[in-house]
Nucleic acid binder design. Structure first.
Lengths: 370, 370
DNA sequence: CTGGGGTTCTGTATCGGTATAGTATTCCCC
DNA sequence: GGGGAATACTATACCGATACAGAACCCCAG
């Protein structure tokens, strides 16, 4: 039944300017407050006739149903789950990998009726969403572990799922095989004959530029794993890559990074990139310098972002099933929530999804061997 | 200060298996519960020394800060705002217009520290997010007005902003000039000399196919306004379009719609589309039939989706500034929330953002006149 | 010595529900 | 006709905080 708009009455003016609550209705109908509560939340607990009268009275009074906050306090559930994102929420909507992931979560969550709350890990005005927003559980997505936001979630003892995060006992986690994927990518270049191979990774600390210690922690679990994977294959081939760090940006590669990478004397014949977005930037920068990809420079991405297929040349990359990751995360979260409600139950799982090298048109033999 | 992970203690086992609350800390430190509350929420209300002791004790007890649900009930604010979306939340992440809009909202909301809750208008398991999820206000985005979800929001007397919705007194609204935009699009085709022009609109009711009464309500405000705009220009030119309704889908045009539109005897020379996504489908369907765009068929979209620029031929379309719409919506929402907190204040605003015809390569003179 | 004005902390009354145990009443069946 | 179980509703006790009006204390001017 469509609810009447009710602009006739001034807001909150119904009798003595106090709000309509269960008690208001109870008084009106002449029953206890509890019975009114049941009329809304447990229809089987009272006669249909009385329930009808109560609902009618509630309607007349402009009651909008049990107050969600009060109900949340009394019941201990809110009907919403969070997704904690590293920095700006904007990223959640602009990055195609993120949208795929979140879309899959949304899909998987749809039948549960849970709402999805996007939480920024950054603090504003003394408000820390991870600490202050009511929710029944959360997915931690690609957050620097150093973020205190994650710690707040843990302290709250919320059911959690870590995604792209180092696995922690007691907390479900979903990861992809970053290391194997990176290894395959590097191996591919080595197999093609490349020996001058550089790496462009996501920025971790300090300005864009060459990284003194590629293995220093701080870039997050994914950065570290991919770094390990690349080195696995490169070291075996005796290749010592330079590692340049750069912001992923959809306009291209930063000047500093591009110069360091492409304008130096010993320009690489191939570049391994942390993401397809970064790879896109590298290709742009190369083209801007008159270098052809892949003839003059082979480029490998990571993720198999839709962008990788759209690019010209189509990007060789490491595919991860982001949608599957999202679905798994949502499933793990609902499982964790169920677990926390019913006491113990199934054990928490740590999932590792496979990765796969997709060879397209951005890689070929190095020039000298052509 | 980074919070210690605290896996050492079993969850909830700290003393008698009861949860740590303000009272627990108060007892431990030997102060009143209120003072502990102040230590967290109003630091200026107690001495720094005592506050330090309280915070330390809280830390030792593994307290995660005031319970958000309880605080929400007592304070009347939750720290999250909702966005009500028509059907599947998935749409929020797959449609580029939606992601642009939501990204802009997220950006504008960032400095306020509010979290963003995505709400599906559909009901699942007796849970209606619009009615049951705690929030401080909401943006209603492209929802069928017939949706009861909107009515729940209204009943809750939440601060609201309607986007792409018929304006209602007392509720802020953000719209674009759909009618003028559609009129310009149709005018463009008429100017080029087209007289056989059809329309493909979003589905409203019933199966895909030709719409008996294009002006019947039910497709939502935007559909109606654009329909009016197209007819403004077409009628003036004596053109009687057929109106085909179709699902926006990124794989192409549905078979039925495509057949009706392109395989009939009196095939149109131009098509006006409700969205760029639908226009994309029309172009695909035309190409599949060996028709060239724009030589054999001119196609006009709506929105200036990024897709429009990517398409070949680049799509002639009506541009709307989706990001501006998002920013305006967020600003209007925070204003509305402020208004509801401080009693009355500034008046609610009804914004109408301009639209602009962008002529690209998908439209030209009709063949016969070539 | 008195009293106004700050701090600092406390007591009490909500905030608006839900859970659980309990009381009538009715129904049913042997 | 009496015991046992439904059915329909109520009483009480939380859920975990915050608001607001004091109360105790200290400092300093008059």
């Amino acid at each position: 039944m469509p609810v009447p708009l009710g602009f006739a009455e001034e807001p909150g003016q119904t009798r003595g300017m106090s709000r309509v609550t269960l008690q208001t209705i109870a008084d009106r109908v002449g029953v206890s407050r509890m019975t009114v509560s049941n009329a809304f939340s447990r229809p089987d607990q009272l006669s249909a006739e009385l329930r009808g009268r109560i609902l009618t009275a509630a309607d007349e009074l402009g009651y909008a149903g049990p107050d969600p906050s009060a109900r949340a306090l009394a019941r201990g559930t809110t009907g919403a789950v969070g997704v904690l994102l590293t920095d700006s929420l904007r990223h959640a909507f602009t990055d195609e990998v993120a949208t795929t992931f979140l879309g899959a979560i949304a899909d998987e969550l749809a039948p549960t009726g849970l709402a999805l709350t996007l939480l920024s890990a950054s603090e504003q005005l003394g408000m820390i969403p991870a600490r202050d927003v009511p929710m029944d559980g959360a997915v931690v997505y690609s957050c620097n572990t150093q973020s205190t936001a994650v710690d707040w979630l843990i302290r709250r003892k919320l059911p959690l799922v870590f995604v792209d995060q180092v696995a922690v006992p007691g907390i479900a986690s979903i990861n992809i095989d970053d290391r194997a994927g990176a290894r395959a990518a590097a191996h591919h270049l080595v197999d093609l004959g490349h020996r001058r191979i550089d790496i462009v990774t996501k920025i971790r600390t300090g300005p864009p530029g060459i990284l003194a210690d590629p293995f220093a922690a701080g870039g997050g679990h994914v950065v570290e794993q991919r770094m390990l994977g690349w080195h696995d294959a490169l070291e075996a081939a005796g290749v010592r890559p330079r590692v340049v760090q750069e912001w992923p940006s959809d306009v291209g590669l930063g000047d500093e990074a591009a110069q360091l990478l492409l304008d130096s004397g010993d320009r690489p014949t191939a570049v391994l990139c942390f993401s397809d977005v970064i790879a896109y930037g590298v290709v742009q920068a190369a083209n801007a310098r008159g270098l052809r990809v892949p003839e003059d420079l082979s480029v490998v991405g990571f993720d198999d972002n839709p962008l990788a297929r759209r690019m010209r040349p189509a990007l060789t990359t490491v595919r991860q099933d982001v949608a599957a990751k999202g679905r798994a995360a949502a499933a793990a979260l609902t499982a964790a929530i169920g677990r926390s409600r019913t006491g113990a139950g199934t054990r928490v799982r740590h999932l590792l999804l496979p990765t796969e090298l997709i060879i397209r048109d951005s890689t070929t033999k190095p020039c000298a061997l052509g």
